[in-house]
Amino acid sequence: MAKAAFKIWRGSSEGGEFVSYTTEISPGMVVLDAVLQIQGEQAGDLACRWNCKAGKCGSCSAEINGNPKLMCMTRMNTLPTDQPITVEPMKAFPLKKDLVTDVSWNYRVKEKIKKFKPRPPDAPDGTWRMMQEDIDRVQEFRKCIECFLCQDVCHVLRDHHKHEEFIGPRFLVYAAALEMHPLDTENRLRDLKDESNIGLCNITKCCTKVCPEGITITDNAIIPLKERVVGEFYDPITRFLNLFRKK
């Protein structure tokens, strides 16, 4: 059976280093299998998160050979084995231990976004009517598994650390899903402009590239939201008309 070499980041917020491991590789194996095998055989205290092992829960995000990926969906046979495979934690969040990062910021951000507020039901029995073609876009956004890989590669967060000002692609997608929900009556555009600072995104599309669910984050979510914000706050005709509108 073939063997593969790994360099896995071991450490805490106080520092750490790559540690080398070698483990056997069986057909079809993914990086998560190898990491769990190393944990089971050689390093019982190697910390990593995982749950479904099928790309559905978004727990096992890591940087594999420098690329942000889900460990459970990265096949070993897609990686070169002539040199050690590096596995590191996500960089946009503080490290807890080894491959586990503190992603609690994401949960705090989400709570600040105004919740879903439906219009009154359409039918006397309290139900609504929505056409499939009107929800296709929202369903695309709702495929998000909250792996936070998009947040990890967003340079506004990763390089410029603007976590206090910017909500990142995940929550722009979340806001877009709410804003484009046919039943929703809330308006989040001012918050998107002032609190979420959507303007900080300069649409480099790094987030779209790493999304394991293939959500077209930039084109389908962020750009339309930016357009709505511009339409609401920067369009000269709207601004002129707003002068005469009651506050």
Partner: peptide
């Protein structure tokens, strides 16, 4: 199930727009 729709769930639709 209907309650979930009131909380924002987006189920696939029938041709007449129901769940």
């Amino acid at each position: 199930v209907r309650e979930l729709e009131a909380w924002g769930a987006v189920f696939d639709r029938t041709k007449d727009g129901r769940i």
